[in-house]
């Protein structure tokens, strides 16, 4: 497959799950890829999985200093590039009475503030005809218990997609969002510490998804690449890939 030959992509939050799957698909299609991640273990395993074709860069998606450094690195490696996939995100499920200021700030820093400044700093390097894809969430349109701050931060991100789509029109850059439902990325293992909790959450989730299953990271990656390279008349839109959950 030479589908993505000559393309260059930057994936923020690309060392596991949906970001990693997208990086793999791009590499298979002949693209050059730079992925970022935060944890040492994640960076090392991504280097192994992606091989020599990919650049794996340590960068904290919440840190403006790191985002500045990332922009310099991308400029040095790629000069310009075609796809910015801002995928880093994380939820700390917490009921209303337990949400602390620290949790609130963490959710907004990682899921809204970091992605916003990533687009601000990296957009000048995106080629004309290029694309930004933001990962939002089913949580920005559903009242999911324990997800108040996460859902609100993702809703902010969805709103950024609309406004930035407008502001980046002169550069001919399209901005869209992909909105995953429950995806089997391995993130549940991080969020829920015990097997018993995970089984309960998975069973409950499968029960309420119209398609009666979790999605896969590959299914998100396909939607991201569709928005990035094929959806040439679509901008400011959000594309739910959620087994029908948000609509049915």
């Amino acid at each position: 497959m030479e589908r993505h030959q000559g393309k260059k992509a930057v994936i923020i939050g690309g060392t596991s799950g949906m970001g990693l799957a997208t990086a793999k698909m791009l590499l298979d299609g002949g693209a050059r890829v730079l992925v970022t991640g935060r944890s040492k273990a994640g960076l090392e395993s991504a280097e192994k999985e992606l091989g020599k074709g990919a650049l794996v860069v340590s960068s904290d998606a919440r840190s403006l200093t790191d985002i500045d450094a990332l922009a310099s690195r991308v400029k040095a490696e790629f000069d310009t590039f075609d796809l910015l996939f801002v995928n880093a995100g994380f939820s700390i499920p917490t009921p209303l009475e337990s949400v602390t200021e620290a949790i609130y700030d963490e959710m907004f820093n990682l899921n809204a503030k970091g992605p916003f400044f990533a687009v601000q700093k990296l957009a000048p390097l995106i080629s004309r005809g290029g694309s930004v894809v933001l990962t939002t969430s089913i949580a920005n349109v559903k009242g999911l218990p324990g997800q108040a701050t996460y859902g609100a931060a993702k809703a902010a991100l969805r709103s950024f997609a609309r406004v930035l789509a407008d502001e980046l029109l002169p550069q001919e850059i399209r901005v869209n969002a992909v909105s995953p439902g429950p995806i089997d990325t391995g993130i549940l293992e991080k969020v829920f510490p015990t097997e018993e909790m995970r089984t309960k959450v998975k069973g409950h989730t499968v029960g309420i998804i119209p398609m009666k299953r979790f999605g896969t990271s590959d299914e998100i990656a396909k939607a991201v690449l569709f928005l990035a390279f094929d959806a040439t008349f679509t901008t400011g839109a959000e594309f739910p890939v959620d087994g029908g959950w948000s609509q049915l």
Partner: peptide, 24 residues
Amino acid sequence: FLASDQSSYVAGIDLLVDGGLTAV
């Protein structure tokens, strides 16, 4: 995209192909 397996986890959605008319 919507007709093929590329969108195998997508159901019930309304995908805009409108040059940004609705959202922007």
